[in-house]
Design a protein around this nucleic acid. Structure first.
Length: 599
RNA sequence: GGUCUGGUAGCUCAGUUGGAUUAGAGCAGCAGCCUUCUAAGCUGCGGGUCAAGGGUUCGAGCCCCUUCCAGAUCACCA
């Protein structure tokens, strides 16, 4: 049983014995003692003054004495400063905690069983008309990390992706390819499929704008010109043909989407993300209509004179929302309802999490209400894991202005930069092959990118500074990975010297304040995992890892493991180092960041 | 205009359910440390009215109210 739980229970017992009041052990809050005071854990007694009807110092003194007599094997001594009761924990307790941390397979994780809640996480959700960019990278990394965190918190997780594979935007690319493509394919051009399609999307836009300009030059106003341009009309015709299942249009659509998927798969693989189940909007968009008709029949929605269907959400403090156009076609909201329906048919979902940018906050507010009305039990409590936009030093990313950061380019740059950065260092390592050096560069480069993005609170808009992201000093992924590699090196050398960590650590060893503080910090990992799960916030894991590494690095400079002459101390320090490396691996693993054995 | 989210060092960000006379990191600047388990590191210095004002209490960067600033959103777009 953990130290703080034992103490919390004893405190609850003490309050009852001393003051005759019932409190739960859960409500007892212990915090780490500030370095300037003596002790390891601190109980703030202010909340109990109303029960004791005594001054803070007196109350703290009484509780302290009670604890000392009740759990002497846990509490070695205590002191009181104002309303703060500082407790010094018996060294043997720290040793056994350390042992628990480094021996447990997944310390701090809650095991997943058949009975665990089933959480579905939707993330990525790309359009199939252009390659992934930096915004998608943030989405994918957050989605993947969140899935890991939810699983570590004892949930069965299904990772899903809704691919927006139909609509006018796809038709634009198709049309441009037919018109100017000369039959170009990924094979003949050597381009990645998603980039190829993206190029034609851009080409369409360019020619389209020209047409609009020409029409405006002839005196047409802008609104009308945008609608009357021949290219856009043709694209609309193509969309109609698609909906009518025109064999030629469908065949081209399938062919081009396949190219895009092949391209996406490469990017996903490089990012290290994957999905358990992929949904396609072309399969789900019709399902939503049925659900809306159903809701209409039940009187949740109403039909206007022009035939369009609406939901009146003014009672919830929102506006009216369109669900079906007057021509009977579905809108974005309708498709999300359809997707929800299919998902619920496929899985007994207890909780649904959508990883989608914060520009859609309103959409998900509405979706939640609609799904609830339509009888989805998880609709009301659906989670919109909303993240902020990625901004660049010179402003926002705008695909039209060409100020986007392409995901594939970014990944490639990160890897080559880290290869260059580590060139001198890696050469110092013995027996390193070119393949291994390249693999290290990949792990470190991706680590830098992932950490840079995940360390920031997801809700906030973040600034992506390309120069800073490849900086490997300070609060960065490589800094943490480097510490891991150094510890692994120590463990290898210890093994060579025949030093092994025994199954039972020596409990009589004395511990320094730094060592105790490090063990406490390791123990906090469990708390960080809980918090990340309840707040849907992977960033606190990243910041936890950084703090831990910072603390270990100071330790690293003050103590040596391999040269320590006291065998018991040596073993404890070795175990401490092993535990730190284990928690780093575990923590970065939750973020989808790999660790190199050497770098 | 309505709704939502943010505002902490020159810059990028932490700050765990409200806790301790002094609010933390990194970058940038300055000064030290590689005969020492990997220096991608460590140590020190300078840098702050936690947007502003009020409130709640033993105690507020954190909770409540008002104001200011920034962003998002409120489409028969997705």
């Amino acid at each position: 049983m953990s130290i703080s739980i034992q103490i919390a229970q004893a405190v609850a017992g003490g309050i009852k014995t001393l003051y005759g009041q019932e409190i739960t052990a859960d409500s007892v809050q212990l915090q780490e003692t500030r370095p300037e005071f003596e002790g390891n854990l601190t109980l703030v007694v202010f909340p109990y003054l109303k029960m004791s009807r005594k001054r803070p110092e007196e109350t703290a003194q009484e509780i302290g004495e009670y604890l000392l007599s009740e759990v002497p094997h846990v509490i070695a001594k205590f002191n009181v400063v104002k309303g703060f009761l500082n407790l010094t924990i018996a060294p043997a307790q720290w040793i056994s905690l350390l042992q628990e941390i480094y021996q447990q397979e997944n310390f701090g994780f809650i095991p997943v069983t058949e009975a665990s809640p089933l959480v579905m996480i939707e993330y990525s959700s790309p359009n199939t008309n252009k390659p992934l960019h930096l915004g998608h990278v943030r989405n994918n990394l957050l989605g993947w990390a969140l899935a890991n965190v939810m699983e570590a918190n004892g949930n069965r997780v299904v990772k899903t992706n809704i691919v927006n594979d139909r609509g006018i935007h796809i038709c634009k690319s198709m049309l441009a390819w037919l018109r100017w493509g000369n039959g170009e394919t990924p094979e003949t051009s050597g381009k990645k499929g998603d980039h190829l399609i993206g190029d034609y999307y851009v080409a369409f836009d360019k020619h389209y704008r020209e047409e609009v300009r020409e029409l405006m030059a002839k005196g047409m106003d802008e609104e009308q010109a945008k609608q009357e341009a021949p290219l856009i009309k043709e694209a609309h015709e193509m969309l109609v043909k698609w909906e009518q299942n025109d064999p030629e249009v469908r065949a081209l659509w399938r062919r081009m989407n396949e190219w895009v998927y092949a391209g996406f798969d490469e990017t996903y693989k490089a990012l290290g993300v994957s999905f358990d189940k992929i949904y396609y909007e072309s399969d789900t968009y019709l399902e939503g209509k049925e659900k809306v008709e159903e809701g209409l029949a039940k009187g949740f929605f109403y039909r206007r004179d022009d035939g369009s269907v609406w939901a009146d959400l003014t009672a919830e403090g929102l506006d009216e929302k369109l669900l079906l156009r007057s021509d009977g076609t579905s809108v974005y909201m309708t498709q999300d309802i359809g997707t929800a329906k299919l998902r619920f048919q496929d899985y007994p979902i207890d909780k649904m999490i959508y990883v989608v940018g914060n520009e859609q906050n309103y959409h998900f507010q509405v979706l939640s209400i609609l799904l609830d009305k339509l009888g989805f039990k998880w609709g009301k409590d659906l989670v919109h894991f909303s993240y902020g936009m990625v901004e660049l030093p010179n402003g926002k990313m705008k695909s039209r202005e060409g100020t986007v950061v392409d995901a594939d380019d970014l990944i490639a740059t990160m890897i080559t930069d880290s290869r260059q950065m580590s060139a001198d260092k890696v050469n110092k390592l013995e027996n390193i092959s070119e393949e291994e050096a390249q693999e290290i560069a990949r792990i470190v480069g991706m680590g830098a990118l992932k950490y840079f993005i995940l360390k920031v609170d997801a809700r906030k808009n973040m600034l992506f500074n390309p120069e800073e992201s490849i900086d490997f000093n300070g609060n960065t992924g490589p800094f943490i990975q480097y510490t891991y590699a150094r510890i692994r090196s120590i463990l290898r050398k210890a093994k060579e010297q025949g030093i092994e960590i025994p199954t039972e650590l020596p409990t009589t060893t004395e511990l320094s304040d730094k060592e105790i503080s490090l063990i406490q910090h390791l123990n906090d990992f469990a708390q960080a995992v809980r918090q990340a799960g309840s707040d849907y916030n992977p960033s606190c894991i990243a910041n936890y890892c950084y703090d831990l590494v910072k603390e270990y690095n100071q330790f690293y400079h003050d103590f040596s493991v391999l040269k320590e002459e006291n065998k018991q101390k040596q073993i404890v320090r070795l175990a401490l180092s092993a535990a730190v490396s284990k928690i780093i691996k575990s923590g970065l693993g939750l973020l989808g960041i790999e660790v190199p054995e050497r770098m």
